[in-house]
Amino acid sequence: MAHHFFFRLLLLFLIFAMLGSTGWTHDLADIKKAGVLRHLAIPYANFYTGREDGLDVEMIKGFAEALGVRYKLIETSWKDVFGDLTGHNARREGKNAKLLDKVPVRGDLVANGMTILGWRTQVVNFSEPTFPSGVWLIARADSPLTPITPTGKLKEDIKQVKTQLHNHGVLALANTCLDPGLYNMNATGADIRLQPKERKLNEMVPAILNNDADSTLLDVPDALIALERWPGQIKVIGPISDAQLMGVAFRKDTPKLREAFNTYFKRIRTDGTYNRLVKKYYPAVFRYSADFFTQPAQ
């Protein structure tokens, strides 16, 4: 009997240990108690430059300060980001998310300009939109692809771009906002070349300059930076996606934390702090999405 008792105790301990590594709730109160806010970020455009600065780094630093806790930046990758936040790796399958293996949780929120996509909302909760986005097709300057003439209707513009893509090489990155499955790219007849999971979004343009393909999918913030960084070497063909929004991702079991962030975000939008940060990192974005930044905070 005693033998059986110890065996059951050990089993219970193991179950708790697994729960602790995967499904462990760590909401606002726990964060305040721990005294640290762990910010997961993937180097991406000027949201997180990879050098401990960026729009989202400054924004989350301010959030940590507002909570009265220490700020800790934890770098991750597109492959691991959901695992690091929720304890379950995940990837897109069709229009849905598929949960994969379990891994230890490493952070409390993800903020690096993550696009709010349908399948992702099945895995995480997003904050109020923090940044407008979209995906454009960027081509090398000498590519036969030609920039479209805007019609004033986004759908028409997307159609114009896609009709050009037959047999053209297009770089894409699965499980990110550049995932070709999100935009029904297979129907275009384009030669979709999925990049290695480790590739960062800001490495897409160097890849087409290196003749890996004629063109690449690229989110608007990255495209704006690329146009400044490689002037005359690339061109914007036109939009691939509908208008998109970005937000901060939270585990589904941390609603308090999300709510605290939304409150914080509303405050910095109202007092102009956020727009100053945006102007610092994305001065051009006001030209594109002036409405987003001028509208009153939700």
Binding site: W136, A141, T146, P147, I148, T149, P150, D157, A223, L224, L227, E228, P231, G232, K235, V236, I237, G238, P239, A284, R287, Y288
Partner: peptide, 16 residues
């Protein structure tokens, strides 16, 4: 250069 490549104000040229 961007304008010569045909880029429109809406998509890219305005950044320049």
């Amino acid at each position: 250069a961007n304008r010569a490549m045909g880029m429109s104000m809406k998509y890219g040229l305005r950044a320049s």
